[in-house]
């Protein structure tokens, strides 16, 4: 037993080092963002001598990260709300209602899971250009919704399958319409799943680069992640400003992670155990 205990402590050492390697890059970036350019060149690793926010405000204002931040926030919010609405509607119907063709429709939605954006990028860009949706917010939102809807429908369907059909039957006998059942029973009962799926979708949309890059060519429509990529060319010689831009993009995710870590992990776990 004591041998095992010692072994556990021995394992804990490399695991702690790995934990350090996992968070250090972000801490380093945060530290650099507080330094002046001169400080950074003289000493890369030393702790900053003061909490300076000039770099952050430069990045936010003159680099335009503030504007991109608002763009991202808007696109992500609308996309996630639509995903949750369409996903829960379809999930409810596919799990609780019996109707002709329901299993074929479910399989159709599922098939979407196996088509990554890279594979349909060219035709999708063409469709968006033909419908004048390219370089518009509705266009990007539509692309995000289409990208993450199969996953959302899949998770909501398997979640709602766990709700006993007697609940729906009872409400129906009492004269509630299908829509009434959806609004007054399924939405409230689905809250835990909607929260998990919503946070995951928000992270996916917030973190996306490729779709935003293909669908939003103009500079003032950039999302925050595209803003980060543009920092590389413009501020490669001004590392503290570069680090500040990265930090602005990372902080919302860090906050979401600190407060909602459980829901994120639950969502990932649910996706794996259902598969």
């Amino acid at each position: 037993m004591s041998r095992l205990r010692l072994g556990r402590w021995l394992v804990a050492i490399p695991m702690s080092l790995l934990a350090l390697a996992t968070i250090y890059p972000l801490l380093f970036t945060a530290n650099v963002a507080m330094k002046t350019r001169r400080d950074y060149i003289l000493d890369r690793f030393g702790l900053t001598d003061a909490l300076r926010f000039e770099n952050i405000s430069t990045a936010w204002n003159s680099v335009g990260m503030g504007r991109y931040f608002v763009n991202s926030l808007f696109v992500v919010t609308v996309s996630v709300l639509l995903l949750l609405l369409f996903g829960s509607m379809a999930g409810f119907a596919l799990s609780q209602l019996r109707f002709r063709g329901s299993s074929a429709l479910f399989l159709g939605c599922l098939a979407g899971l196996f088509i990554p954006f890279q594979v349909i990028m060219v035709p999708l860009a063409r469709i968006m250009a033909d419908t004048a949706l390219i370089d518009t917010y509705p266009g990007l939102i539509l692309v995000y919704v289409a990208q993450f809807l199969p996953f959302t429908v899949f998770l909501m369907t398997s979640y709602y399958k766990g709700i006993p059909p007697e609940i729906v039957d009872a409400a129906r006998i009492d004269g509630s319409t299908v829509y009434g059942v959806y609004r007054r029973i399924m939405l409230p009962l689905g809250t835990p799943a909607l929260l998990s799926v919503g946070i995951l979708n928000a992270l996916f949309c917030w973190n996306d680069v490729l779709m935003a890059l293909v669908m939003m060519p103009s500079a003032d429509h950039r999302t925050l992640m595209i803003g980060v990529t543009s920092l590389r060319g413009q501020y490669s010689d001004n590392i503290p400003t570069f680090a500040s831009g990265v930090l602005i993009a990372a902080i919302p995710v860090l906050l979401v992670y600190l407060f909602l870590q459980r829901q994120i992990a639950d969502g990932v776990a649910a996706g794996s155990t259902k598969g």
Binding site: L85, F86, G87, M89, A90, F92, A93, L94, L97, F99, S102, L105, G108, C109, A111, G112, I115, I120, P123, L124, I127, L142, V143, V145, A146, L149, P150, V153, T177, V178, Y179, Y182
Partner: peptide
């Protein structure tokens, strides 16, 4: 009603995933 509930999801997935 069931068809109307699945319509938005199916339409989006078919038009912007399977068709492309």
């Amino acid at each position: 009603a069931p068809y109307i509930l699945v319509l938005p999801a199916v339409l989006i997935i078919v038009l912007l995933r399977l068709y492309p």
